[in-house]
């Protein structure tokens, strides 16, 4: 796998080839509810990333990220962050999505949302292990948020052997 290096980061920072930046992603699917801070396109990027982050391939019987509305819940969660943190998170989504990122990170000049599942996983792996610190941070932001929302859902508890919170002994009010 190509690892995004300093050259790749610099390329992204200065804009890179415009034809790659201008490539469009997959049309956004409808969100379950109204979005608070993300645009439908940003929601689509996040939903596509979440679909690879959880639960992963070969997960027959597990709820999908879409079924648990992971991206929609993340929109609500991100909405409570500091406005500048929201802006930065949205920027991360756009950089992650761009065809240029695909070109420099895994050699595939395609947007994330239009990439195959295999290439989507390769792009996530590329950011996860990148020599560029901000890419590792961007991966961790998406990873932690998606995992937090998915695995804190009671629908998942039986799948991971967690019986759920214990019964609370009754105490006088």
């Amino acid at each position: 796998m190509l690892k995004t290096g300093v050259v790749g980061a610099a390329l992204l920072a200065v804009g890179g080839p415009l034809f790659l930046l201008s490539r469009s992603g997959r049309p956004a699917r409808a969100s379950r509810g109204s979005l608070r801070v993300l645009t439908p396109y940003e929601h689509e990027i996040l939903a596509s990333a979440a679909a690879r982050l959880v639960p992963g391939d070969g997960a027959a019987g597990w709820p999908s990220a879409e079924a648990l509305d992971v991206a929609g819940k993340l929109d609500a969660l991100v909405a409570r962050l500091h406005p500048r943190a929201i802006k930065e998170f949205r920027q991360v989504l756009h950089v992650f999505e761009s065809a240029l990122t695909g070109a420099v990170s895994i050699g595939s000049p395609q947007t994330f949302t239009r990439s195959s599942a295999t290439d989507q996983d390769r792009r996530l792996q590329s950011w996860r292990h990148s020599r560029v610190a901000v890419f590792r941070s961007g991966y961790q932001a998406m990873k932690r948020l998606a995992h937090a929302v998915y695995y804190s859902s009671p629908e998942i508890y039986p799948r991971i052997g967690y019986p759920g919170p214990p019964a609370v002994p009754q105490v006088p009010a």
């Binding site: 690879r52 982050l53 959880v54 639960p55 992963g56 391939d57 070969g58 997960a59 597990w62 996983d121 996530l124 996860r128 990873k143 998606a146 995992h147 695995y151 799948r159 991971i160 052997g161």
Partner: peptide
């Protein structure tokens, strides 16, 4: 990690 490898750990 993420995806199936991470899920396997969670199980």
């Amino acid at each position: 990690g993420f995806g199936s490898a991470h899920r396997e750990l969670m199980t």
